[in-house]
């Protein structure tokens, strides 16, 4: 047996858990869902092939377009705002000589560890129009708060707000990235008379673009898949069903409430293709924008 064959065998052996897991828990379901997306599959009856009907059905489904719109609007606000907030907070946290950095970082990071379900409960309570903390505080400063979850116009802003609360992970990544920027570059920039803001813009930002790319891709995938928060905030008696309805909520409904497995699978595949396309585009665009140290 040649060394090459031996290595092949041992490589396959070492990675066999993944290979088996990938085949059974990812590839097989993926293939099944592709097949179901071309069938009528009402749960307890066998699937029957119906060609492209599920996909053409999506085109004419108002509900589908509504959740597409909502999810995109949410993402369009959540992604830039979360990126902005996390960058700013990270820039503060990366300031040299900062004391109690661990505490501040911990405070920002902690919310990302809270179970989504518990977090959603807390926000449900904070958004309570009458006694919720947000409106009570607003009242305290003399502003009459909106009725948040009862007002369609505030559904997405409320979701974005809860999203901002969960930027901790990105902040940590940015802080680490900023810390790797050589101090000499800052000194040079300072000597050139740049203030903190311009320094961040012209020195820090270009050098941490790989981290930005990583975060934006993760954030995009996450935003398009938002589920638990709108599920808790809007799937209750008083919630705004439509304005808070998101792509994955409708997918879940179609699969497990309306018993349209085939239709739900078509929705799932549309989502997969969109995520792959967006990731691809970002990777491609990044070739021009992202600065990898050593490459320049």
């Amino acid at each position: 047996m040649s060394a090459r064959t031996r290595n092949l065998i041992s490589g396959l052996l070492w990675t066999s858990p993944w290979l088996v897991g990938f085949a059974v828990f990812l590839f097989l379901p993926l293939a099944m869902s592709l097949w179901y997306s071309f069938t009528d599959y009402p749960l307890l009856k066998p699937p029957v092939y119906i060609g492209m009907e599920n996909y053409t059905g999506l085109l004419h489904d108002d509900k589908f377009w509504l959740v597409v719109k909502n999810t995109l609007v949410y993402s369009a606000f959540a992604i830039p705002l979360s990126t902005l907030v996390s960058l700013v907070v990270a820039a503060w946290l990366a300031t040299p000589g900062l004391r109690a950095r661990g505490f501040f970082l911990g405070a920002v990071f902690l919310p990302t560890l809270v179970p989504m379900m518990a977090a959603a409960m807390v926000w449900l309570w904070l958004f309570n129009a009458e006694n919720g903390l947000i409106n009570v505080l607003l009242k305290f400063v003399g502003v009459s708060g909106p009725i948040w979850l009862n007002d369609a116009r505030w559904s997405i802003p409320a979701l974005v707000l809860t999203g901002l609360w969960g930027v901790g992970q990105m902040v940590v990544v940015y802080v680490a990235a900023i810390n790797e920027v050589p101090a000499a570059l800052y000194e040079a920039a300072t000597l050139d008379g740049m203030g903190p803001v311009r320094r961040f813009q012209h020195v820090t930002l270009p050098l941490i673009t790989p981290a930005v790319l990583f975060n934006v891709i993760t954030l995009t995938i996450g935003s398009l898949q938002i589920f638990v928060m709108p599920y808790v905030l809007f799937r209750n008696e008083q919630g705004q069903r439509d304005s808070g309805n998101m792509y994955n909520l409708l997918l879940y409904d179609n699969a497990f409430v309306y018993q349209k497995f085939g239709y739900a699978s078509a929705m799932a595949w549309v989502q997969l293709l969109v995520v792959l396309a967006l990731t691809g585009i970002m990777m491609f665009a990044s070739k021009r924008l992202v600065h990898y140290r050593g490459a320049a």
Partner: peptide, 20 residues
Amino acid sequence: VPEWTEWKDGFDSTIQDLWR
């Protein structure tokens, strides 16, 4: 009819719209 579940969700949405 089995389709009522989905149809009813349409009623829920519509009445919310009309109400507002």
